[in-house]
Amino acid sequence: MTYAVKNLTHGRELIAFRIGDQEFCVNIMSVREIRGWTPATAMPHAPPYVLGVINLRGAVLPIVDLSLRLGMKPAEPTVRHVIIVAQVGAKVVGLLVDAVSDILTVTDGNIQPTPDIANEAEKAYARGILAIEGRMICLIELDALFSHVESEAA
């Protein structure tokens, strides 16, 4: 993976990734590392999008099928899939995506508001869309996506 740090005085860095034919991005500050797919241990009574847990250097890391979580069809993990290890609140989760595509440096001006057509579920996590080189990339707010992780820990 490339961890090229771009010299920026303003704006923020985002990691863009691909799920199916759509592109999404999250704030790079919440990403801890990116690693390849390893089979996960299934959890009983887990929601369908939780694929299970894996061993991340001694810590137990839950793996979330982001495709399913975002309401798309379930992923069929292969060795080509990657796991984005992200910090959500006090917890660390692994997000299964098809591939990491880019590191973007954007300013707030680049981010367009989420269009009105979005339904409630999509509005909940989408924080806006970016138009970059003719591609459309959706900015995801991880905290909104996994708010239950926080609340249930209490």
Binding site: P39, A40, T41, M43, P44, H45, A46, V50, G52, V53, I54, N55, G58, A59, V60, L61, P62, K91, V92, V93, V149, E152, A153
Partner: peptide
């Protein structure tokens, strides 16, 4: 290993561990 650290309490499961093959049990 604690499951609650990054996940939630799972009914019927006390905790997790890592076996010799590196997988979580």
């Amino acid at each position: 290993k604690s499951l609650e650290a990054n996940y939630t309490h799972v009914p019927g499961i006390a905790a997790a561990t890592i076996l010799g093959d590196g997988r979580v049990a």
